[in-house]
Every structure is written in C-alpha cells, then in structure tokens.
C-alpha cells in the first residue's frame, strides 16, 4: 500500500466501486420487483377474470348443465386429495429426512445405500409427472384393480413428492447447528431424544417450507391425477352418505361417499385441464377462471396457514 493521498486517484477508485455497487443494487432490486410483479399479474389476472364468477354460491354450489352452477364437488376433492396425500407424504418424508440427515452413513457399505437413495430421489424428481401418472395407472388402477380412486391418486402424488419432501426435510434438519446436538448428547440424552426434543423443533421452519412446497405441487398437479384419481365426478356430493358403511369393500359407501378414499376424485387442477381441453358447456371459460382463482386462493391461504402453524409449533416445542 503506497501512501498516495492524491484526491484524483482516490476519487477514481471509489467511483468505479460505487458504480458497480449501484449496478448490483439496481439489478437485484429489479429482479425482486420483477418476481413480485409476475406474481401480482397472475393474481390480478385471475382476480379480474373471476370477478362476478366466484361467489359463495360458486364455491359451495353444485355443478349445473343449464346455468353457471358451482364447483363444490371439485373444490372438496382438492382439499380431500391434499389431506390424504399429506397424511402419507409428510410423515414418510420427514422420517426419510431424519434418516438421511441423522443416520445415513457417507462411507462404507451403508454409504452405498445413501448414494442409492440420493440417486433415486433425483431420478424420481426428474421423471415427468405424466409418466408418474402412467405408472400409477398401471399399478393402482390396473394391477391392483382399484379403478380410479382418490387413494391411488394420493399414492401416486406421494411417489411424485416424496423425494422433494425427503430432501427438504433433510436440509432443514442438517441446518440445525451441530452444537445443539452435542449439547443434548453431552447431557446424557439418547440420539432419538436429541432428535425428538432438540433437532426437530429447531427444524420446524424448514420442515414447514417442505410441507408448503409439497402441498403446492399437490394442488397444482393434474397429469399424475388424470390417470389415477380419474376425471368424472358426480354433480352432487351427499356428505351424509354412509351407505353400507363398513369394512366390506364392495359396499356402496366405498365407491360413492365423498368421505371414501376408494372413489374417483377430480381435483380443481384436473377440472381446469378438462374444461380447457374438452369442455363444451356455455360457461366453460367462467368455470375455468373461477376454478383457477379458487386454486390460487387456496394455495395462498394454505401457505400462510402453514407458516402460522409452524410458528405456534416452534413456540410450543421450544417454549421460547
């Protein structure tokens, strides 16, 4: 470092750095603004398109051949499929994440198992969803002879989403500082106690992100469900239908009740796809726009809700 106090050279050096700094600031703010704008545009577009279409009657009404009607059966199916899929995918995904983060070995013969799991995760993640749908068609619909069922759809969606859920859980758990684990183990806690009482509570925000991203894919997925949960939904759901309720799988309950996992279930996404590709009715555009608006609303509500639940859980489990 030479002791050059010439104001000119000092000025030149800083101004170049300042230009770069300003450029970076503008580009990064610009990118953020662009992303927000994109999101805003999508929301605005469907809000405008759905204006006058979406009403309580539309959300909670039954479809009609002669009037606009409602989309309640399809709306119900979206919620149903989400709940069923998350019920399977979230516990399995988190358990998988715990294995990968806390138990998996990187070396030795068990290291090969770890590599194999990683490879499978990446391979399944990159399989096109239509292929997963076809696989579900062959396995659940044909081989198992279930026909089109909500359960088959949920399993296919689980297959499709498990790698993501596992990977995100693993990352969330790995992000918990090693210090916390050491502190717990040094106090004489067992490994599982450490995971249960220290690692998992601290990983909740990351796990919630995993749940939200997985849920987003369940809401939005059409291709997987097309071949597994089927198209075609009755125009009216009778929630009091426990007709022949029992463990007899041939009873009417299993195949007609809206509560049953063994009935076909068209979700909003599949319904939108159907309306746009083969819809004929006079109201098909309004129905599609209205459904899309409901879908966006559901995603937003779910995301915010999941974050709120995550915060409450964190507070409960860490008492801080």
């Amino acid at each position: 470092m030479t002791a050059n106090h010439s104001p000119a050279s000092l000025h030149r050096r800083t101004s170049r750095a300042i230009v770069a700094d300003r450029a970076a600031t503008i580009v990064l703010w610009g990118t953020a603004a662009f992303v927000l704008l994109l999101l805003g545009t999508i929301i605005l577009h469907f809000a405008l398109a759905a204006w006058g279409v979406v009403s309580l009657g539309f959300i909670f009404g039954d479809p009609s051949d002669t009037a606009l009607g409602g989309v309640f059966p399809v709306f119900w199916n979206s919620i149903y499929m989400l709940a069923l899929t998350m019920l399977i995918a979230v516990p399995v995904g988190i358990l998988g994440g715990i294995y990968m983060s806390e138990y998996a070995r990187e070396t030795g013969p068990l290291g090969l198992v770890t590599s194999a799991i990683r490879f499978a995760e990446e391979a399944i993640s990159s399989v096109p969803s239509i292929v997963v749908g076809l696989f579900g068609l062959i396995l659940f619909v044909d081989t198992f002879r279930w026909g089109f069922t909500a359960l088959g759809g949920a399993f296919a969606l689980t297959l499709f989403n498990l790698p993501l859920m596992t990977r995100l859980s693993e990352q969330a758990l790995r992000a918990v500082p090693q210090d916390e684990r050491q502190a717990s183990l040094a106090l004489g806690a067992t490994k599982w106690q450490t995971i249960r009482h220290v690692v998992l509570p601290l990983a909740i925000p990351g796990l919630v992100t995993g749940v939200i991203l997985t849920a987003g894919r369940v809401f939005g997925e059409a291709a997987v469900l097309l071949f597994t949960a089927g198209i075609g939904t009755p125009v009216h759901y009778d929630f009091a239908n426990f007709n022949g309720f029992g463990l007899d799988f041939n009873s009417g309950w299993w195949h007609t009740s809206p509560w049953s996992p063994l009935r076909p279930a068209t979700t909003l996404s599949v319904y939108i796809w159907k309306l746009n590709s083969e819809g004929l009715g006079a109201f098909k555009n309004q129905l599609a726009d209205g459904s899309a608006a409901i879908l966006i609303g559901m995603v937003l509500i779910f995301n915010l809700g999941a974050r709120a639940v995550g915060r409450v859980l964190t507070r409960k489990l860490t008492a801080a």
């Binding site: 106090l187 860490t318 008492a319 801080a320």
Partner: peptide, 19 residues
C-alpha cells in the same frame, strides 16, 4: 461457545432430568 437450547431458562435446566 455457550450453547443453551432455544428454550426457556427453566426448560434448559430441566432438559437432562426430563430425558
């Protein structure tokens, strides 16, 4: 490095005995 758990003071101390 001091590494208390992100829990209340009480729960930090009670952690070992609870386990």
């Amino acid at each position: 490095r001091p590494n208390p758990f992100p829990m209340s003071i009480y729960e930090n101390v009670a952690y070992g005995p609870r386990r």
